[in-house]
Nucleic acid binder design. Structure first.
Lengths: 213, 213, 213, 213
DNA sequence: TATGAATGAGTATTCATTCAT
DNA sequence: GATGAATGAATACTCATTCAT
């Protein structure tokens, strides 16, 4: 199997081999990060070599270093790429005029979609263990920030009566855990679209198991 | 710091250095698996070398091979050790005379406790990516079995009216995800005891976010 | 800190960034070789990357190849640059009307100044190991020539009675070694000026340790 | 050429292939360091790969790591091995009853022999540039100590009248430089034995170039 | 039982060098 | 003239695994 074929086989276009030579650095960097995200999700961070990623792009390994400092940097960038969607969801929630529960719903949908994206696995699995102190701290900070915002929405909801009186911390953990886990089982090929999954999860979060009369 | 001291410092006894020479193979094997579970949870599977585990036990690396075939075998055994608690929970649920929701509650509590145990991380993270085909298949089979049983309980509950009519598959995924995630943030040192966490999670699952009137 | 600033900070002008655009190729080539000499002396040949040298000049790596064939060529040119001073010293000695010892003194002073220059390290360290066969041979030839000429001066001195009867070869080795070593410890910032060092070394060579009565 | 033959060709016995398997760890470690010293001297530190050294011993690369932490550690050990001889010379000088010049002579002979040994190159070339901060500091400290002791002997000599009144610092630099340089040109195969070289150098140091009447 | 010793295989990273623009 | 982009080759270092003792 040639490089070309492998690239094609993977079903993902590479800016390096699209007929006319693209010169857009940002585009290529993006492709590198995307390829890494897919590889990490598929095989795991440690089971993915830079050669794997380079091969998926039809490029040689040192080329990657032209766009990214490190392997861990690659993981970090995947993490950040996924984060964008979540940030947007928080923005949207902030702009909305709904009550706490409605706002939370907006955020959770965005969160679920991000987790179901190709960057989801990296977001969820970018961990201390694989990153140096500085990056580890940055990631923990961002994750902490998200957690804090979710709790805040829950508390808003309990304040305005749209959410039952509950332990915001534990509830946020449960919700985030359920959503994070999507990264472990969802594949784009699945029958259920990401948006569908998000809505059903939210339905469950809102109504719970016990029947309402 | 000597090996001995490190072992002691970690606060975990080693059957190799407990005064009277223990000759019990099973006991030592257990210790090996426990040490592995702790190390994997702490540093991750790939960031833990067999030397690390051996050092934690005050033993040399080849000794481990006397008790276990492989590094991946070690991971598998950790997975299995955690499974025991879940199996027991299903047994208890089966013996109980409660309705579906009550039975599910029993299972979820057992599941949560298992995940919060020192083996929890391994159970949740024992993945295809790090195991050969055979083991990977065995693990997937067991995880699938648990999923199926949880869905069955949910369906029982909807049948007997104790659980709202819902998509059993998605609900099971949400619940399992929330519980699995506990392995990522819970540490024994935490203020909240595992049992407490379990009950609060179950409370959230049952009642949901929306206030009941 | 930008490239520009770094260049300035290093206190060495670059013909690429000096206001009026210098078009003089020779000048630029000179600057390249000087920058290399400084970098090699500071960090060693192998610990200096072409990127380092380019950065010191505020230029990109491929630009260097416009002025020089190779990395090893760079080293060779530094070697040659240092050699000029020594050649001049030999010329001066040849023109002088002093006896052997006086002529030798002239040469040694020139030699010492060359070694103390920014090219000294390269002259002394340009070695077989880092150069291909051809260059290695050229360098060895020049070094051999210098050695031969120094020995000749010594022999002249012994002939005219200005130098004690001694083994010219071993004496030349001792003298050259002592002078070469200057490259390892002398820095321009040092209190002792190069000329001063040269004179003191020559004093020691001429008079020896044992007191004369 | 097979591994065996290459080992033989190099003319150096390897404790790994001497018929009966030697189990003496210290012996093997010594052999590793010796092999490194020879390789570094021959090809230079950076041009020597660990594979080269391993091959010279008829062993595989990871084996080296069983005896030594690092490549730089290897260099450091070579440095230390050479140091032993110098330390002994200082001891002997201390025990001697001669005057300053006679004591200095003892030290310089020992120094010269050490430099001419297989470790000489490493001693002379173990440099900051190739070592991390800690090792670099240790080496500088030891070199500084030797320099200080040589200066002290010179001052002793000037005090007791056996050495001319001179700048101890510059004289020590000149002498050490001349001796260090031996590592660059002396090979065991040379006609002149190390002891011979030492004596001739010392003769030059003591008597100087100018004839005494 | 346990271990000292050894190794094969793998992998991130660096860097001199090239070349089309 | 200068550079952005790419790459081939090299290399230190790690680690699971084996085996004789």
């Amino acid at each position: 199997m040639t490089q070309q074929q492998r690239t094609v086989a993977a079903g993902h276009a590479s800016p390096w081999h699209g007929g006319r030579r693209r010169r857009d650095r940002a585009l290529k960097r993006d492709a590198v990060i995307r390829a890494a995200a897919r590889a990490f999700r598929e095989r795991g961070y440690h089971n993915t070599s830079l050669d794997d990623i380079a091969a998926a792009l039809g490029v040689t390994k040192p080329t990657l270093y032209y766009y990214v400092r490190n392997k861990q940097d690659l993981l970090f960038e995947c993490f950040q790429a996924g984060l964008a969607g979540i940030g947007a969801a928080f923005d949207e929630a902030r702009r909305s005029h709904g009550n706490g529960r409605e706002r939370l719903r907006i955020v959770l949908r965005g969160y679920a979609l991000a987790i179901a994206s190709e960057f989801g696995w990296c977001m969820v699995r970018a961990e201390d263990q694989d990153l140096d102190a500085a990056m580890s701290a940055r990631i923990r900070a961002r994750k902490g920030e998200i957690d804090r915002q979710i709790r805040a929405l829950i508390q808003q909801g309990t304040a305005d009566g749209s959410i039952r009186d509950c332990d915001a911390k534990i509830t946020a953990f449960a919700i985030a855990g359920a959503l994070n886990w999507i990264a472990h089982w969802h594949r784009e090929s699945e029958a259920l679209a990401a948006a569908d999954i998000a809505d059903r999860f939210i339905g469950f979060f809102e109504d719970g198991l016990r029947p309402r009369r």
